[in-house]
Design a protein around this nucleic acid. Structure first.
Lengths: 112, 112
DNA sequence: ATTTTTGCTACGATTTCAGTAGCAAGAACA
DNA sequence: TGTTCTTGCTACTGAAATCGTAGCAAAAAT
């Protein structure tokens, strides 16, 4: 009955005994599907299944695990009758990530 | 003799048949240790072992796999007699990610 | 009342990662 | 020259994460 390790600032995480917030964040964001999930939630709220489809049909078990972590981290919230959405905080985080689109376009060209 | 799947823009990746650059990037960045490795390379070049230590002693096999992917993606380069460093492109990418530190500080407080 | 949709849980198969050991090549000594 | 140390990396095994599919209970739609 091993519970998934939720990264919490102040507590040690993978590869960092200090628990510095940015390390915790990198640990959280570095888990599979997390960036993609945040990305797909940039628009209106999505239901569990819609989000699953948007992510190309990832396992519901993994999706559920990621959503639990993101809810615990107050980045994603579940709204009754609407579905999953970013919190205000989560939306700010996504804003920080937005320039990645532009960067990735240039990057793609450089890779031919 | 299965080779590691390197994400390349234009080719389909996990959960995305389109191969849109940003999806490929999210796939790449979402792999374990990638964000952390980029982060640790924000300063001067690091040797393989120094980088390994900076990441808290991750497996050399995983580090080597990640470095191969990042080199193929022209984000990291290996400089003779210096070690591993970000390319110009990779440095730009890290710049996009820099605001995450500030965000993570606020985030940590909100979770406190 | 029946069918659909939704939000999940269960479970076995596969892939990835962790952790340790160790080796070949080069540099630094001696 | 021979020995020791460092460096970059490969090999191997066990543990953990993820995939892919099946399916179930509750709510909504028909």
């Amino acid at each position: 009955m091993t519970k998934s390790q939720k990264p919490v600032p102040g507590r040690r995480v993978r590869g960092s005994a200090t628990g510095r917030p940015v390390m915790v964040l990198l640990d959280l964001l570095g888990r599979r599907w997390v960036l993609r999930i945040l990305w797909e939630l940039r628009g209106p709220p999505l239901t569990f299944r819609a989000l699953q489809a948007a992510c190309g049909g990832l396992s519901p078990s993994v999706l559920n695990a990621r959503l639990a972590e993101l809810r615990d981290s107050l980045i994603v919230e579940q709204r009754p009758d609407e579905g999953y959405a970013l919190t205000r905080q989560g939306r700010e985080l996504l804003t920080q990530l937005a320039p990645l689109t532009a960067w990735s376009e240039k990057w793609a060209k450089s890779l031919g």
